[in-house]
């Protein structure tokens, strides 16, 4: 079933066009890799879906809803930056998500926080990059959302944290929800992706099923990336 539909989606900043008449359809139950070099529009696309940036033109719907308070109930967004308030501790963060998101599973989150080796009284400001990354992913993936938007979830994480984060993403993947992962670390995520979208200059340069692309092009995703962006 169709989960996200973008028709002629455009985002302009003065003279710069970041998303250029983008056409995109995402289906339920899949993990999508959103790939592209810096400035290709990955983060802008995720921010637009999350409702942090408004499109300059075109149409964008999540589960049939225009972007707004209702679509935000269905979308779980993990930004690349540290968005959790520094005054909070881990326990506050769990309560915050519980208070605001109806689909937040506190029990699951508590379990995951413990799995990740986090302590409840640890302040966000005192967490290392790796621990903060683990907390962010535990919170975002403990929502029973329809669509998960993960912007560079592995950035700045050590190999052990990366492994834990990937494990959690896989555990969270459901039949009626989808995950979009924007990243540069293709080799690390290649094995968990169902579909891949290559963005170039705000447009889709190539998209398709990962296995099919590998078979047809006889290339790994990383090699395919180099082929698509060779001139970038």
């Amino acid at each position: 079933m169709e989960l996200l539909k973008a028709k002629g989606l455009t985002k302009k900043y003065m003279t710069k066009t970041v998303l250029n008449n983008l056409e995109l359809t995402l289906e339920e139950g899949k993990i999508y890799g959103l790939l592209g070099p810096n400035g290709s529009g990955k983060t802008t696309l995720l921010k637009t879906i999350a409702g942090l940036t408004r499109a300059s033109g075109g149409e964008l719907k999540v589960n049939g809803q225009n972007i707004g308070a209702l679509s935000k109930q269905e979308v779980s967004y993990l930004p690349t930056i540290s968005h959790l308030p520094k005054w909070m501790n881990v326990k506050n963060c769990l309560n915050y998500y519980q208070d605001f998101f109806k689909d937040f599973n506190l029990e699951l989150a508590t379990e995951r926080v413990e799995e990740m080796g986090l302590k409840y009284n640890q302040k966000v400001s005192s967490l290392s990059t790796g621990m903060l990354g683990r907390l962010k992913i535990a919170l975002a993936m403990s929502r029973q959302a329809k669509l998960y938007l993960l912007d560079e979830p592995l950035n700045g994480l050590d190999p052990i944290s990366r492994e834990k984060v990937l494990e959690m993403i896989l555990k969270s993947a459901g039949e009626d929800s989808s995950i979009i992962i924007a990243t540069h670390l293709i080799r690390e995520i290649e094995s968990i992706l169902d579909e891949v979208i290559f963005l170039k200059n705000g447009q889709i340069a190539l998209e398709g099923n990962v296995d099919d692309l590998r078979l047809v092009k006889k290339l790994s995703l990383e090699e395919l990336y180099k082929e698509v962006y060779g001139d970038a």
């Binding site: 942090l52 308070a69 979308v75 967004y77 930056i81 968005h83 605001f100």
Partner: peptide, 16 residues
């Protein structure tokens, strides 16, 4: 600041 990436993705409309 970065805090907006949490607060402004809460399921509330602008008026709320």
């Amino acid at each position: 600041t970065d805090e907006g990436f949490l607060e402004l993705t809460l399921p509330l409309n602008g008026y709320q």
